[in-house]
Deep mutational scan, measured.
Amino acid sequence: AVSDRLIGRKSVVMEAISPQNSGLVKVDGETWRATSGTVLDVGEEVSVKAIEGVKLVVEKLE
């Protein structure tokens, strides 16, 4: 599936994300709604860990 190619990809937070609120990330020039178990600020680099419905699950790059 097209979405499977996103797992493991680097992306950049475009709208802040917290455990309570989804935000936005940009992956390969496309904007996606995303969630995370931690707070992520605009501009942080993250990695796509999973896809749940139409949202990406991301975490901060170490």
Rank of each mutant, 00 (worst) to 15 (best):
D28C: 15
T31E: 09
K49A: 08
W32T: 03
G23W: 04
D28G: 08
E59C: 08
G53K: 03
E59Y: 06
S18A: 06
A16K: 14
G43M: 03
S47A: 10
K26C: 15
V46S: 02
S36G: 05
S22Y: 10
V25C: 06
V12H: 06
T35F: 05
I17C: 06
R5C: 14
A1R: 08
L6C: 07
V25P: 01
V25L: 03
V13Y: 01
G53M: 03
I7V: 09
A50M: 07
K26N: 11
L40S: 00
T35H: 05
V27K: 01
V48D: 01
P19C: 07
T38V: 11
G29P: 01
E30D: 08
S11D: 06
L40N: 02
A16P: 10
A16E: 07
G29N: 10
G29Y: 05
E44M: 11
A16C: 11
G29M: 06
T35G: 05
A16Q: 11
E30N: 08
E59W: 06
K49Q: 08
A50Q: 06
K26L: 15
A1Q: 13
T38L: 08
D4T: 12
S3M: 14
V46L: 00
I17P: 02
R9E: 07
V42C: 14
R33F: 10
A1E: 12
S36T: 02
D28V: 04
V58E: 02
V39D: 10
V57P: 01
S22P: 14
V25M: 02
A1I: 11
I51V: 13
L40W: 06
G8Y: 02
V13G: 01
V42S: 04
A50T: 06
A34F: 00
E15T: 11
L61V: 10
E52N: 10
A50S: 10
V2D: 13
I51R: 07
A16V: 08
N21A: 12
D4G: 09
E45L: 14
D4M: 10
K60Y: 06
L24Y: 11
S22I: 12
K60E: 04
E52R: 09
E62H: 12
K26G: 06
V46T: 04
G37W: 13
N21T: 13
R9W: 09
T35Y: 06
G8C: 09
Q20S: 12
V2P: 15
V48M: 00
I51G: 02
V12T: 09
S36C: 06
D41P: 08
M14T: 11
Q20V: 10
G37A: 14
G29R: 05
K26F: 13
D4P: 08
L56V: 07
K49R: 10
E44T: 12
K60W: 04
A50H: 07
I7T: 06
M14H: 07
G23H: 02
D41Q: 14
T35P: 02
S11N: 04
G29H: 07
D41S: 12
L6F: 08
D4N: 13
T38A: 11
D28H: 06
V57I: 11
D28P: 01
V27S: 02
T35C: 12
S22N: 09
K49S: 08
T31M: 13
N21K: 15
G53R: 01
D28L: 09
L6N: 03
V13R: 00
E62L: 11
K10N: 09
N21D: 07
V39M: 11
A50C: 10
S22Q: 09
I51A: 05
R5P: 07
K26V: 13
R5L: 10
S11E: 05
V39P: 11
V25Y: 00
V27W: 03
V54C: 15
T31N: 08
N21Q: 14
L56G: 00
V13S: 00
K60D: 02
V12S: 05
V46R: 03
K10E: 09
V42D: 02
P19Y: 04
P19F: 05
D4R: 10
I17E: 00
R5H: 11
R33C: 14
A1N: 13
D41N: 13
V42M: 05
E52P: 01
I7E: 03
V39I: 13
E30C: 12
S36Y: 02
L56M: 05
A16I: 09
A1M: 12
V2F: 12
M14I: 15
D4K: 12
W32L: 04
I17K: 00
G37C: 14
E62A: 11
V54K: 12
A34R: 00
